[in-house]
Design a protein around this nucleic acid. Structure first.
Lengths: 129, 129, 129, 129
DNA sequence: GTGGTCTAGACCACG
DNA sequence: GTGGTCTAGACCACA
């Protein structure tokens, strides 16, 4: 289910957080769906349960999941408000990346097209301006 | 000139690398312009010269500056091409960010407009004089 | 295991880099094999751990090893391709050396034979034209 | 006449030594031909005369030129004996380079061809002594 | 006076 | 116990 890069400089719990966050964002893990338990996931990935625990705690702290003691961890449904702060950060990161791509010689039109494709990819095909 | 976040979990040399890279990309630091010397910058930021040197060395490895022993460190002019690998990484990062922004409820059209404005803001005029 | 020349003008970390690179290239250190830990090697060579770390970091930058924080450093398996730049440098160096050998009076045929023997020594022994 | 790379990490006097050695080896500078005086060369390259001086001293030490006080520096004719030590070093360097090229995926036959071309490139031409 | 190397010793995140 | 970060302070080659 998850593929971790043992060679990566990024700590494993961090990789786990990103992977799960991606699954939630891409709607692979549906709202209120239960995540694998710490023990099960630790068994599948053959890594320390503490590492899973840490990743789940981090995800909870960032608002992507919620834990019910004695039951498990579940995907927290997205709430379209209260994300202003996170969005500001993402906008800044996006801006930095775009600037660097341009600096490295990527054609601006190509960058735009790529973003559009990403934004509208499963919406019905309106990629026009 | 530079502001470092001492509380951040990112190491100081890494923060320095990102800051300087940004200045180069945004053409604040011009090609072949000399960077502050290791000792001067260490003095200004009141951190150890070795930390500055590590940041400069990293920037040199990544191709953004070059160091001439006994003279100083200078901005390496960008060479279009041979950046394919780096661009691929950036494209992936961009994809992930855009997906998350969409998930958090950011209006797609607004994202596009923002990027366009940024990309074409100094389209007509050359940035350096 | 490693012998460093303290009198050499080449910095110790650079000598280490070359030595280890040679061991990897000659398959003495196998792919994914763990290198001695920074502290162990520092102990054996009676030099500062930071010097070892610098060498390891340099090897990582050059793509010969990878480091997993908390686990150790390992030989990165060679990936054919993407080495064009490095190969161009080596070809130029080879050209310069051969030219000097010829200038110093080394018999050309002897040079060829030596290289052939080396290249095909573990391939079946075809040393013919 | 000479092109120095100011960006290179190699010290300028070292670059000078290599460049002049190459000219001698390739017979561009003939035996007993006079080299430019320190002052003239310093003027042409717009670098410090001390740097030229150091390069010439190094070349003399390595046996490629000889200096006549009050007259200038001259190319020392190659003596096909007494080069055994230098040749052994070059053979070792050659061996290392070939091994790395092979490791990086260069076809052995191509390496051989390259060396042969280099060795015999002006075989039929003038070998006057 | 510059960048570069090296040492000695401390602390931290990670698994 | 690992690699990684940072400090404080020393010495060297180079131009």
């Amino acid at each position: 289910m998850f593929e971790l890069d043992l060679r990566s400089r990024a700590p494993m719990y961090e990789q786990l957080v990103e992977k799960i966050k991606e699954l939630i964002i891409n709607n692979v893990l549906k709202p209120d769906e239960q995540l694998p338990t710490v023990r099960v996931l630790a068994g599948e990935l053959t890594i320390n349960p503490n590492t899973i625990q840490k990743a789940y705690r981090e995800l909870e702290h960032r608002g992507y999941i919620y834990s019910v003691p004695g039951k498990g961890s579940f995907v927290r449904p997205a709430v379209p408000g209260n994300n202003a702060a996170r969005l500001r950060i993402l906008e800044k990161e996006l801006s930095i990346i775009v600037t660097e791509m341009r600096y490295l010689g990527a054609p601006p039109q190509e960058i735009i097209t790529r973003i559009k494709t990403q934004l509208f990819k499963d919406e019905g095909g309106n990629v026009d301006d």
